[in-house]
């Protein structure tokens, strides 16, 4: 089955990004395809390569990058939400790309399921 995932929160204030990541990993482990994760609202902060959590904390930006590169998951950061929050191309971790909100609607059309994580 093809999954699309919408994430609406950043990696530190809410649990949503972690839940989304664990769901994506579990879906892939079960042999499903996660075609795209769309990062909206404060979730655009999941893409910031300068994010430096303490050493005993998980590094979600890195985990997303690995998921994206190892499993071909398209990690899309919403351009309008990103610009508001100062997230630009040069800040993106590997595997992320900035694109329009149309990518969210498109994955809604193409995926079998769209699952939202937010606050």
């Amino acid at each position: 089955m093809k999954f699309g995932i919408l994430v609406n929160e950043g990696p530190f204030t809410h649990q949503a990004s972690d839940s989304a990541y664990l769901f994506a990993k579990a879906a892939i482990a079960k042999g499903h395809e996660v075609t795209r994760v769309f990062f909206y609202h404060d979730a655009v902060n999941n893409s910031n390569k300068h994010s430096a959590p303490q050493s005993d904390d998980r590094n979600l930006v890195k985990l997303w990058s690995e998921l994206g590169t190892e499993h071909g998951v398209d990690l899309v950061v919403c351009v309008a939400a990103a610009l508001r929050r100062g997230i630009t191309d040069d800040l993106l971790a590997e595997g992320f790309n900035i694109s329009g909100l149309g990518q969210l609607i498109e994955v809604g059309i193409e995926a079998d399921r769209l699952v939202t994580f937010g606050d």
Partner: peptide, 28 residues
């Protein structure tokens, strides 16, 4: 497609950014 708005405006950004998604969806 159903967009479900459950949050009050201004106190948080969700209402505004959700409206932006609805506007984009019209193009599809």
């Amino acid at each position: 497609f159903m967009f479900v708005n459950r949050k009050a405006p201004y106190g948080s950004i969700y209402a505004l950014e959700s409206l932006e998604v609805v506007l984009i969806s019209a193009a599809f």
